[in-house]
Structures are given as C-alpha cells and as structure tokens.
C-alpha cells in the first residue's frame, strides 16, 4: 500500500454526555483505507461502530462532549472544516452513507425517485430533470426497476427500499460510502443479492466502502480489510485473507469461533460475560475480563502493536519487531 490512503483516521475520539456520565463511544481509534478497498468495521452491538460512522460523517447528536482527532480524506484534514464547509464539500460529495435500517429511513410521503434525485440537486447543481435521469441510471445500477421511480417507499419491499437507499448514496458518485449494517434486516437471498450489487458497484466504479456490521460471515463478502471494534476501541486491523484464516486478537479469535459453519462439524463456541460499560471502561485491556489468554500485563492498557502491517491491541504481540502506536496520554480525560 504505497498509494496515498483515501481515508486516514487518527486518534478519533467521540464521547457523549448522558445523565449517567460520559459514554466513551469511540475511544482513540486509528485506521486507514486505500482507494477502491472495503474495510469492515466488525463489532457487536454497543461497541461504538455506528458512532464511529457518525463521527466520520460528522452526523453528530447534540450531546457530544468530545469530538477530536484527525480524519484525512485524500490527504486533507477534514476535521478543520466548518460544519458548513463539511456539508457542502465532503458529506455526500466525497463520503456518503447508507444508514442503519435504511429501508425504514426513507421519507414515507415522497416518491423514491425524488428522494434519490435530491442529493444530486443539492450537491451537483442539477435541475430536477437531470437529477431524475441520473436517479434512473442509479436505479438500473442497483437493480431497481426504473418504473419504481414514481412509487412511494411503502409500495416497495424491504430489499427494494434498501437498494433505493444505496442508489441515494451512490448518486453523487462519492469516493467513499459508509454502509451501516446494510443487509442485517433482510432475508438471506435478498441479502446475497444486495451484496452482489455492492460488489459490482465497487468493481465498476472504483468506490471504497466502510462496511459496519456485526455479521462476520456476510462481511467476508465485501471485505478487503477487517477492523475489529470492542468497547469503543479498534482492537485489530487485518487484511481479510489473514483475518478470516487466522485472526490475531483473542477477541477476534473467539468471535470467529462463535460463527456456526454450514459444512463444519465443529461446535461453535461462545464468549462468556458481556462487554464493559462504555461509561466507565476498565483501565487495562477492555477485553481482559472475558479473555481466555489473560495474563498479568492485561491490567495495563495495551498499545497497538503493528506486526507485518497488521495491527493489534494486545499484549500478546509485544515483541521487538513490532512498531507501537502508544495509547494517547490524555486517556479518559474529557474536554
């Protein structure tokens, strides 16, 4: 990976203020993404993966107590942009998003064609006719019959609505599309069909994806790289090949072992316990309490060790050849 990365996220922090304290939803996260690649952010519910998507797209709720770090897009730090600049120059121009449960996120009283055309009118300065033509093109791209342009969301099936939401993200031809659980509520075959659509788009348009999901098996359909998130932190970044055959972090290993496989007689395993609260995460390694390989050092927060271009936040990989990304000093402090 000698090319300049498309996206580089460094030390990204997003905390929320709630009545019970500060939720450390995204805690000093690093990763990068090359052009025309797909990175999977893998994590279980409540690990902060959706918050990270929101942090990258700067779609923040009002109760943010801390939002810092560096998000470089094509080498430009977009964190420095004002909200207005970000809205006009980045969101839906360079990065777009298919939100979670997108098929329920469409406006029920606007025709789907108009909804898909909307970003083109706002960001590409198109008039309505041009935008609708483009929308029609997008519909063909994602496999929605063109005559659906004039339908309302409720007249479409879940799978079709999901395709519409993808078309909406595609219409401005962004370099990067954030997909938040794009298929989780869909049926198996619909899910496979949508994955096919996403693959085709990636191959044909050269788009990059950040795929946020909890579904390991399905994520392998799209992944070039896998970043595993646990309790607000990325604990492993690995290329797909290596991740699906030999994951590094004990959590990743356990997670892989919990996937039931169709043609494998081995009983899947499970991880006892539950993830720590993000209100007051443990000082040391956040997975330590559930880890089968735990040792004394796990009481301290592990830095991220980079071994052969794969990074892992676990003391087991402390070795001389490893480069180290130290945890930030301001840890836990809230501005």
């Amino acid at each position: 990976m000698h090319d300049q990365p498309l996206l580089r996220v460094e030390d990204l922090v997003l905390y929320f203020k709630t009545r019970r304290g500060h939720v450390q939803a995204v805690d000093h996260v690093h990763f990068q993404l090359s052009p025309n690649k797909a990175v999977v952010i893998l994590g279980e519910s409540g690990c902060g993966k959706t918050s990270m998507a929101k942090a990258i797209l700067r779609l923040l709720p009002r109760n943010v107590s801390r939002y810092s770090g560096k998000i470089e897009l094509n080498g430009e730090d977009v964190m420095g942009l004002t909200d207005e600049e970000y809205r006009t120059r980045v969101r839906w121009v360079k990065i777009s998003m298919v939100p979670q449960a997108a098929m329920n996120a469409l406006n029920p009283v606007i025709r789907v064609g108009d909804q898909v055309a909307e970003p083109a009118m706002v960001h590409l300065d198109m008039d309505k006719e041009q935008a609708l033509n483009l929308a029609q093109e997008m519909f063909q791209h994602v496999g929605v019959p063109v005559d659906f342009l004039n339908r309302y969301p409720f007249e479409l099936s879940g799978g079709m609505r999901q395709r519409v939401a993808i078309a909406m993200a595609l219409i401005t031809k962004p370099q990067l599309i954030v997909l938040d659980e794009p298929t989780s509520a869909l049926d198996l075959l619909t899910q496979a069909n949508i994955m096919n659509v996403l693959k085709t788009i990636k191959w044909e348009t050269g788009a990059s994806y950040i795929l946020i999901t909890h579904d390991i098996a399905t994520s392998s359909e799209l992944a070039d790289e896998v970043a595993v998130m646990y309790a607000g932190q990325i604990v492993e970044v690995n290329d797909a090949e290596s991740f699906f055959s030999s994951p590094l972090h004990p959590y990743s290993q356990k997670l892989m072992a919990s996937v039931p496989k169709l043609y494998d007689d081995e009983q899947p395993d499970f991880i006892p316990g539950r993830p720590p609260s993000l209100l007051d995460p443990p000082k040391g390694c956040r997975f330590a309490a559930r880890c089968h390989l735990r040792f004394e050092k796990c009481d301290q927060d592990p830095p991220t060790f980079v071994v052969d271009g794969r990074s892992v936040k676990c003391w087991l990989y402390e070795q001389e050849s490893a480069t180290v990304i130290e945890p930030a000093i301001v840890k836990g402090g809230v501005s």
């Binding site: 797909a38 496999g143 198996l188 075959l189 899910q191 496979a192 069909n193 994955m195 096919n196 693959k199 085709t200 390991i216 098996a217 399905t218 994520s219 392998s220 359909e221 799209l222 992944a223 070039d224 797909a240 090949e241 991740f243 699906f244 055959s245 892989m256 996937v259 496989k261 169709l262 043609y263």
Partner: peptide
C-alpha cells in the same frame, strides 16, 4: 446464499436467484 466467513467470498458474485 448462506455466507461462510471466507475472504474468497469477496472475489466473486453469488449465484442466487433474483
């Protein structure tokens, strides 16, 4: 249509009925 965790999945389309 059922995926198995395998990096090779990303290389080809699935042959599922439309």
């Amino acid at each position: 249509g059922t995926s198995e965790p395998d990096a090779a999945n990303a290389k080809h389309l699935k042959e599922v009925p439309p």
